[in-house]
Design a binder for these strands. Structure first.
Lengths: 109, 109
DNA sequence: AGTATCTACAACCATTTGGTTGTAGATTAT
DNA sequence: ATAATCTACAACCAAATGGTTGTAGATACT
């Protein structure tokens, strides 16, 4: 059956947000340094509004934080959310390892 | 400017595929054990064709492999692709660590 | 005060996504 | 041989996505 929980929706948002190279690039840059929205927008071959939307998607996924500073908004990458995604994938890998271990145990009999 | 390369499109597909709880569940199951498409379909409250499509998305992302076995197709989760995604996220985290290290070095002066 | 810059947000459009039903081909079971 | 099961795939639909332009509010600069 498998019903979507609140937590699942958050995970959906994180991976969905990461499934776009422009957004991944924004995450990279804002983890390594800080950028205002306009500074980011100058880096890409698309409208300011488009970049603004990408930032909004990242913010909704908590991959990025928007900090008001005068008329600017400073965008900061959020390593905690990256780590969360990483840990989920690590769990997946673990499932596989467990299966292999069980197989090995079986063959060892 | 940032142009989408072939490699970027592959990454897009991986994260896009993971951005759906049904698909994540399929990955989990097929990493831990093996399932035919029908066996998988029975687990979810949607049509067989819908599950078939989810499997196709996972296969296109190389998160899953489809192995013919008589009239069945056995679906196997692919840990290598999970690991690839994990490593990319680890690189992201590294960018952040580098920034913090530079900041520390600056403050230490 | 007036102008330029930065951001927010609405309205619109084409494409993609996630589901459906229906049809047909292969393989297995009776 | 016939029937049942498993898979593939097309056609369709509503909603979401990724882009655009345009308008307007705040803040900063001269």
């Amino acid at each position: 059956m498998v019903v979507d929980t609140r937590a699942d929706e958050n995970i959906d948002r994180i991976f969905r947000a990461l499934a776009d190279s422009t957004r991944r690039d924004i995450v990279r840059r804002t983890l390594a340094s800080t950028f205002s929205v306009s500074e980011l927008a100058r880096e890409y071959d698309m409208s300011f509004a488009a970049v603004q939307k990408h930032v909004a998607v990242l913010e909704a996924a908590d991959l990025v934080q928007k900090i008001p500073n005068g008329r600017e908004r400073i965008i900061k990458g959020n390593p905690a959310t990256i780590r969360k995604a990483q840990e989920l994938l690590a769990q997946f890998e673990h499932l596989w390892r467990d299966r292999i271990d069980r197989l090995d145990a079986f063959l060892a009999e």
